[in-house]
Amino acid sequence: MITLKEIENLANLARIKLDDSEKEGITKDVDSILAYVDQIKEATVNMDYTPVPGAVHNAFRGDNVITTSPESREAILNEAPDREGDFVAVKKIIAQD
């Protein structure tokens, strides 16, 4: 059984604010989903990670610098909720003593 306290801890780790009113419902849902996926624990599996065909292909490319056009940069910066010149503006992170 997953507890309300564990859900609060997960939400804290995931940086998600949960309303008190929905915590109980989410705890119940997460609990039923975990009970379902717990079947995996019964599976006899050999913890073997040798890739099988179709799983992964390594793709190499040159480590080249590609300059972003001023228009693209402008478009990207304009999507930021807040900007100052060519910077994305955020609240101060380091507190002053």
Partner: peptide, 16 residues
């Protein structure tokens, strides 16, 4: 939304 939050929490759990 609710499903996204639920799965983020579940993902955080299975990766912890």
């Amino acid at each position: 939304g609710k499903e996204a939050r639920r799965r983020i929490l579940l993902g955080t759990y299975v990766l912890s």
